[in-house]
Amino acid sequence: MDTLTIAGREFRSRLFLGTGKYATFEQMREALERSGTEVVTVAVRRVNLDEAGSGKSLLDFIDPKRFLLLPNTAGCYTTDEAVRTARLAREALGTPWVKLEVIGDPKTLFPDNEGLLAAARTLAGEGFVVLPYCLDDPVLCRKLQDAGCAAVMPLAAPIGSGLGIRNPHNLGIILETVTIPVIVDAGVGTASDAAVAMELGCHGLLCNTGVAGAKDPVLMAEAMRDAVAAGRKAFLAGRIPKRRHAAASSPTHGMIE
């Protein structure tokens, strides 16, 4: 059985799914179900104390026994904010897993490399299982591995952009550079993007907007499930080399005259 192992935990699905931007909690639950995912990301935010506390909450729709809840530090712009948010998430969820984000720019949501590395070192030192959202930079990924991260999550393209795999060559070099799993994060717009990432040899893929923003998010969740599985199988099967000219599939001898 082909499985993904991160920090000693084994997953059958290589698709991670976000929980943001769905029209309803019910729709999100259905998408998670159909995607086959085992890892779902969540965000940490202040409780709105002006609202009554009796409303439905996200966690009413996700069974924490079935899914690994992976809290993120989205929206944090400093190492300090990200570290504090990770610590709060650990207390709220009872999990040391964190998808670490330290954002450097509001327009592109590109990460702040120095801030990210500093936060990764601190949190890994405190026993967190750190999965950093990072640029598709092989040198940075090696530094994140050295910092004690359990995986790296290089972006395919800006968060929510749907631009797909912008730099397959860098992802390839990252795969040659680090020994920890490489989970493509951000920018996946449709199923073929997911398949491309997996065909490159990436170990997994996280998608949120590509699913939640689709016209039919539940069907797209299923498409992503199939694409990740197909891309992984193609990688394992080993694709043929590309060539400029034709190579006949049918025998060239024995033709009638």
Binding site: G20, K21, V42, V44, R45, R46, V47, L49, A92
Partner: peptide, 24 residues
């Protein structure tokens, strides 16, 4: 969590109460 009942608030404390919401 285990210290909620024994931690008393003091004048001037800065508190954050957070929970989990949808995110990617």
């Amino acid at each position: 969590r285990t210290a909620y009942t024994t931690t008393a608030l003091l004048d001037g404390d800065v508190l954050e109460v957070v929970h989990l919401v949808g995110g990617g």
